[in-house]
Structure formats: C-alpha cells, structure tokens
C-alpha cells in the first residue's frame, strides 16, 4: 500500500437520506469507532477529497448536485454508498419523488447494505474502498460494484 491510500480524505453528501446513515457515519468518525486510525479525514471541499460517501437515493432536485460534487473530486476517486436507499431507494423506493439508487447518476464502487448499516459494516466498506482506490491508482479498471440483492419475501418452506 502506498502513502496515498493511507490518508484518504472523505467528502460526505446526503442525497435523500433520513439522517439515520448520516449520524452513523459521523459516529464512525468519533472516538468509539475511530475511522481516523485508517487515516480517514472528513473534509468539506470535494476538491480535497479522494472518497465520496453518499447516503440516500436520488430525486430530480439533488441528482445534478450529486453529479456536480462527484465531478469536482480529482481522479482517482472511489464512491462508497451507505444504506439500502443508495442501491434501490430502500423503504422509499415507491415514493413518487424517488428515482432510485445513486448508480443511476454516478458509478459506485462499494455498496454497504443496511437500514442504517452498523458502524462496523461501514468501516468494512471503507477498508474495501481503500483497496479499490489503490488499484485505481495503479491504472486498473475496477468496474462498478454489484448491487446487494434484497429478498422481499423469504422463499416458501415446503
């Protein structure tokens, strides 16, 4: 691992989220879970960042904002999508103003499922993202992440 992926700076954008994921992300950064031991630092300016953390689904109003924030981050960059809303819209999927997952607007590298995900799961997602960041820096095409599959109804027991 190079020095580059030992200090990934993170910019957070709340798309359409209910705050549950956002406060868990902040809890990740504070002493109990302490993401800073991996060098992760929360910054406000996308031009300083390497990792974009998104919570929530997209709607017509925030899709251009999300695209704008993503475009401002210099390459190589990774996108970590927190919560089930980012992949499908989650519990709000049927709402009239929800377009669906954020992968409709920007490419996603890591999906962290859960409503909200536990901080441990988020840390796991970040560690995975750091590996991808390192590969991207080496010029490798990592493709985009597979969406977590959700079983709405468990299969019937024979």
């Amino acid at each position: 691992m190079s020095a580059f992926s030992k200090s990934p700076w993170v910019v957070h954008y709340n798309c359409n989220s209910c705050n549950g994921c956002d406060i868990e992300l902040l809890a990740c950064l504070t002493p109990m879970y302490d993401l800073e031991r991996f060098g992760v630092l929360n910054v406000g300016n996308p031009k300083h960042a390497d990792v974009l953390v998104v919570t929530g689904s997209v709607n017509h109003r925030n899709a251009p904002v999300l695209k704008n924030v993503y475009d401002q981050i210099p390459d190589p960059k990774v996108v970590v999508a927190l919560g089930v809303c980012t992949s499908t819209g989650g519990i709000f999927a049927e709402c009239y103003n929800v377009l669906g997952g954020i992968d409709k607007v920007i490419p996603v590298d890591v999906f962290v499922p859960g409503c909200p995900p536990r901080p441990e799961a988020m840390i796991d997602g970040f560690v995975k993202a750091l590996g991808i960041l390192e590969e991207k820096r080496g010029g490798k095409d990592t493709g985009s992440a597979e969406k977590p599959t959700i079983t709405l109804f468990p299969p019937a027991v024979e």
């Binding site: 709340n14 798309c15 359409n16 989220s17 929530g56 689904s57 709607n59 109003r61 925030n62 904002v65 709000f92 049927e94 709402c95 009239y96 103003n97 929800v98």
Partner: peptide, 9 residues
C-alpha cells in the same frame, strides 16, 4: 433537496 413524498406512500 430531500423531498421523498413519504406522506403519499
């Protein structure tokens, strides 16, 4: 920016 339409749902 985060209107979802929850009341309708």
């Amino acid at each position: 920016y985060i209107h979802r339409g929850l009341e309708k749902l």
